[in-house]
Amino acid sequence: MNSSTDERLCDFPQGGKGDYRCELEANLAILRNTPAFSGLPLERLKLYAFLCKRYRYRAGEFLFHQGDKDDRGYIIARGRTQVIREYKDHSYILSELHEGDFFGGLALLADIKRLFSVRAVTELEVVALDRESFRKILAQFPETSIKVLEVMIQRIAQMEERLLEKHVHECTYQS
Rank of each mutant, 00 (worst) to 15 (best):
P142Y: 08
G73N: 13
V118Q: 14
A157M: 06
N27C: 06
A59Q: 06
F141M: 02
Q14G: 02
L9T: 09
A107K: 06
S38W: 03
F102V: 07
K113I: 01
E86K: 15
S145Q: 10
S38I: 02
Y74P: 06
M1K: 09
R80L: 09
L106Y: 07
N27S: 12
G79C: 06
F141A: 05
V83F: 12
Q66T: 07
A120G: 03
S133R: 11
L129A: 12
A77P: 00
S133H: 08
R131T: 13
H169A: 10
L106N: 09
E165M: 12
N33K: 14
I156F: 07
S175E: 09
S117C: 13
Y74R: 14
E86R: 15
A110K: 15
P13A: 01
D101T: 01
F50N: 03
L24V: 00
K53Q: 09
L106F: 02
Q66F: 03
R155E: 11
F64Y: 15
R131M: 13
S95V: 02
E96N: 11
G79P: 08
E61L: 05
K69G: 00
L115P: 08
R72D: 06
E96K: 07
E161I: 04
F64A: 14
S145A: 15
F141P: 00
L115K: 15
R85E: 05
D6L: 03
G39H: 02
K53Y: 05
I75C: 15
E165W: 04
A110H: 11
K136Y: 07
L63W: 05
K88H: 12
V168D: 01
T172A: 06
E43V: 09
K17V: 13
A110T: 01
F103M: 05
Y48V: 07
I112N: 11
A128Y: 04
H65F: 10
G67N: 14
I93F: 08
Y173I: 11
Q174Y: 14
L106C: 02
E132S: 15
I146S: 04
R114C: 11
E165A: 12
I156M: 08
T5G: 11
L97C: 02
I84H: 15
I112P: 11
I93M: 14
D101P: 01
M152Y: 13
D130F: 13
G73H: 09
L40C: 13
L109C: 07
K46G: 02
H167C: 00
E43A: 14
G18K: 02
Q82I: 08
R155P: 05
F141R: 06
C171V: 03
H169Q: 07
D19F: 03
S145L: 05
G39C: 06
G73K: 04
L9M: 10
I146A: 12
G100M: 02
Y173E: 11
